[in-house]
Design a binder for these strands. Structure first.
Lengths: 251, 251
DNA sequence: CCCACAATGTGCGATATACGAACAAATGTC
DNA sequence: GACATTTGTTCGTATATCGCACATTGTGGG
């Protein structure tokens, strides 16, 4: 790609949108400028453009995104059949298990949630479609990495920031590769509080009718409620059932 | 706003993202150009920019959005506490009713889904966060319009394309305004197959602790299964219960 | 195999944008 | 109330983008 085939104004604008999030529902021009590391004048024009198009509100001081930005993520969710097809199965899974069920795909070193059926009993982690977690320490991440050729999986691990979120987090790339082999052999991945203390999860890969792994689904549960050792006996059958049900319907 | 405070490159790029959707998971440069009514060269630069930033894949012929675009919608969903707070209540509502439950806000003439708990029994309509429906013929739309000052609601109706999706769809603005008054008085809106034959729904407004209507929630059910007349007796108590539970927790 | 048609890629001039700095306004501090 | 600091806005100019026209590549049909 030639340098001139890059629209930097567009790229800057996307960066500004992403500056919003989590604990930042509304931003001033200066705050957005700091977060994006762009010039204040540039950020200001991007924000005014967003406001003009209806993607943001402006009260003279703060900018806040409007529901219209959901059109952008929706362009992906509705263009990709996967989330829509999986959602009802997740709801069923969540109901049967009494726990939260999610589906995700791999994007770089992270897993991205594409659908989720949550239970009221919320963990400290708040997840929704579009949420991202590091792949190396998430059950769905392990399953998705295990589905890749070894060299590719290793490459992703090497590019990951392998930090110990809890004392139980596995951070040695070689040990993680061993773990991936076990996951591949066993057909599922169990995470015991590697992401957050008190949170266990179990995941299986989802294959399409041609046998290609296109996503992963998981069930998460509080460790106090369901010890890691019990995850397999309690939830693996349900997950396998969903896995089998989905395979023929995914092109 | 001065003309020079508008970044047209950014606006064009957003338009390109929105060109994807529904039955268009992948687009060629020429297709995207037709859909956006932009110059091919411009669209090409936008798409290459998206690909360069990882928001799209390019195989030399087709462009397809990647899960990374979910970051954009997610910037809103996670920046706005509303969807996250409502989700568990929707899950509960869906479980108790055995039907799909959703939450939405108003954006122009449309309602935008911000959260949803769906049941496996799917209708022909596939909805997910970010989905949009015309407000005038959706139960949540009626409730949200009823919460506005009459002149404002009327303005939105006048700007809406009031088309009859089914023989039952109400399309006369004056009759719709009457209906809004009934909704306001009754505290809920029931839709009997006005959007799609065979689909009924009932909605109530969600207020925050200051009494401002910030969203609407609804339950949708197949008309064959639950006739419109029964919607109120079966689901209004559940909806009212959820409404009451949410009010104190919304700032 | 060649031709016609369509889609994609590219060079160039006109135009619009980004940058940085300077100014204005608001905010906070003493 | 005056000063210091931060934030928002304006402006001129170097620079990058846009859209057009043309070159190139790809694709079926005869």
């Amino acid at each position: 790609m030639r340098e001139s085939d890059f629209v930097s104004g567009f790229a800057r604008g996307l960066k500004v949108i992403e500056a919003f999030g989590e604990a930042r529902p509304k931003l001033t021009i200066a705050e957005a400028a700091k977060l994006t590391e762009l010039d204040r004048a540039t950020v200001r024009r991007c924000l005014l453009t967003l406001a003009d198009l209806g993607y943001a509100d402006y009260d003279g001081k703060f900018f806040a995104l409007t529901p219209k930005v959901l059109r952008l993520g929706h362009a992906y969710l509705s263009a990709t059949p996967l989330p829509l097809m999986i959602q009802p199965y997740l709801d069923q899974l969540s109901e049967k298990s009494g726990q939260s069920a999610s589906a995700s795909v791999l994007d770089g070193t992270e897993v991205v949630y594409i659908a989720r059926a949550s239970q009221k009993r919320v963990m400290s982690i708040n997840l929704s479609p579009g949420s991202r977690l590091p792949a190396y320490c998430a059950s769905m991440g392990r399953v998705l990495l295990a589905a890749l050729p070894e060299t590719e999986a290793r490459g992703i691990l090497d590019r990951s920031e392998l930090k110990a979120n809890t004392p139980l987090t596995k951070t040695d790339p070689d040990l993680l590769m061993d773990e991936l082999r076990r996951v591949r052999a066993g057909g599922c991945a169990v995470i015991d509080q590697e992401l957050e203390l008190g949170l266990c999860s179990i995941a299986v890969p989802i294959e399409n009718d041609r046998g290609r792994v296109v996503a992963a689904i998981n069930i998460g549960a509080p460790a106090a409620h369901v010890p890691a050792a019990e995850m397999i006996v309690r939830y693996l059958p349900l997950l396998k059932e969903t896995q089998r049900a989905l395979r023929p319907v995914l092109r």
